[in-house]
């Protein structure tokens, strides 16, 4: 299955992204609970992009079992302000947005692989994988 890239520029794109991820996950054979986890992670990470960086994109990459292990990788990238202290941002309850601070740490709990790279002034990239 091909990769799919979606622009994240408005709140409505968050809905499009999570719907698309759910559909791809279903097609790949993920069960309902994993579809829900992946859609929820997408909602959290896409919202962070729109809220803090204003725009960016998500790429959904089905992982081919012939090249290792079957699964779905999601990459959320932006050229926004970046995160000064990633370790702090990963803690439950940390928020600069007067919010719950659950998006990053919660998303990490919903996937098998979670990587975050961020540089102040350059942007942020979050990569997650859920194995099939």
């Amino acid at each position: 299955m091909q990769s799919r890239s979606i622009a994240l520029e408005s709140e409505h794109d968050i809905i499009i992204a999570r719907g698309e991820v759910r559909a791809i996950a279903a097609r790949l054979g993920f069960r309902l609970l994993d579809q829900t986890r992946l859609a929820t992670v997408t909602s959290e990470l896409a919202r962070n992009v729109v809220k803090y960086a204003l725009r960016g994109r998500m790429t959904a990459q089905p992982l081919d079992p012939a090249q290792g292990r079957a699964g779905l990788r999601l990459v959320f990238e932006d050229s926004g302000p970046g995160i000064p202290d990633v370790a702090a941002a990963m803690r439950d309850g940390f928020s600069t947005g007067r919010s719950l601070g659950k998006g990053l740490p919660g998303s990490k709990r919903l996937v098998d692989v979670f990587e975050i790279e961020s540089e102040v002034g350059r942007g942020t990239r979050v990569t997650v994988v859920r194995w099939l």
């Binding site: 609970l33 579809q35 829900t36 929820t40 919660g106 998303s107 709990r109 919903l110």
Partner: peptide, 14 residues
């Protein structure tokens, strides 16, 4: 609330 949604909420820490 669907069971999958409830489980995901707990994992999210909400």
């Amino acid at each position: 609330m669907q069971p999958a949604v409830a489980i995901t909420l707990v994992e999210l820490g909400l």
